[in-house]
Amino acid sequence: MSISTLWREATGRGTQGGSGTHAEAADRPVRTPRHVAFIMDGNGRWAKQRGQPRLFGHRAGTQNLRRVLESCGARGIQVVTIYAFSTENWGRPQEEVTGLFQILTEAIGREAPALHANGVQIRHVGSMEGIPARLSNRIGEAIKLTAGNSRLILNVAFNYGSRAEIVDAVRRIATSGVAPEAITEQLISDHLYTAGLPDPDLIIRTAGEFRLSNFLLWQAAYAEYYSTQVCWPDFNEEELDRALKAYASRDRKYGGVSDGEPDA
């Protein structure tokens, strides 16, 4: 397969062009992923392009989330994981971190009742260590409010780092007294923050970047990856359908070979 072909498959570019049409959106793939994860990149870039501060972009990004979730639910996606704040994001300017926490506190208070009414179950993926009490309380309230819902599960990866998650899982296994020879992949999976949920089938990253950025490293072992040039605040229904169409066109072999494909 050529480099240009790989690029087109990973980004969805080279076949559609432009911003797409509603006719394209109607042409939805038959094979729908159960679990889609989003690396919501480009909020600051989006704001800068409009002559606005980075927090303006973060606010627009949170406002876009409900629209994306509605589109995912309408397409039968069962689990959505969003990368809201990484453990590395603490290294950003304090003003931005404080402002982001304020935006998230407001967004959870505003959106949780509507998500609950639409059958969305909110889960937190990550650590609460160092999180302001007001934001921590809002997260806890939203989790409690939506705990009985089952239409769609929303994992909010907040103060999350995948390496820290794996280390935490291994430590808990070790302290439980499990013999080394009894440690399996399934046992480690059962001790991750996402225990009990299917691994992501598709990871979508906005703003044109090609990095996992310490996100779901264990769970994403066989996930398909899709990158779009569109920044997160502009990621819409048409862009989601392009990603799902690209996913549906791929042959997920899980290390094996396709039917009829000769061994290498």
Rank of each mutant, 00 (worst) to 15 (best):
T62S: 13
A117W: 01
R75Q: 07
L135S: 03
D259H: 15
R211C: 01
I183W: 05
T206S: 12
K144W: 02
I122A: 10
V68W: 07
W232N: 00
P113M: 09
N159L: 04
A179P: 06
Q94Y: 09
G177W: 00
A133Q: 15
T15Q: 12
L202Q: 13
A114K: 10
G119N: 02
W218D: 05
D27G: 02
G256A: 12
R211Q: 00
G255H: 00
R134K: 10
A74Q: 10
F56V: 12
K48V: 04
I108K: 07
R134A: 15
A157N: 03
R8G: 08
I173Q: 02
Y160P: 00
A84G: 14
V30E: 14
E106N: 07
T81V: 04
E106K: 04
E239T: 09
R134Q: 15
T194M: 06
Y222R: 04
K48R: 09
S2G: 11
S19I: 07
C72E: 05
L244F: 10
A243Y: 03
F235A: 05
H58D: 01
T206M: 00
P93H: 04
L100T: 08
A23Y: 04
T32G: 09
A207Q: 03
P180M: 03
I103N: 04
P180S: 08
H191S: 08
G130A: 10
A169C: 05
D190A: 07
S127R: 15
T5I: 12
I3H: 10
K245F: 10
L217M: 11
R59A: 05
G148K: 13
Q121I: 03
G51H: 11
I103C: 03
R59H: 12
R242L: 06
P262V: 07
D201F: 05
D251H: 14
Y193R: 12
G196F: 08
L192G: 13
L145N: 01
R252L: 01
S127W: 13
A179E: 11
R252D: 01
L187I: 07
A246E: 13
T146D: 05
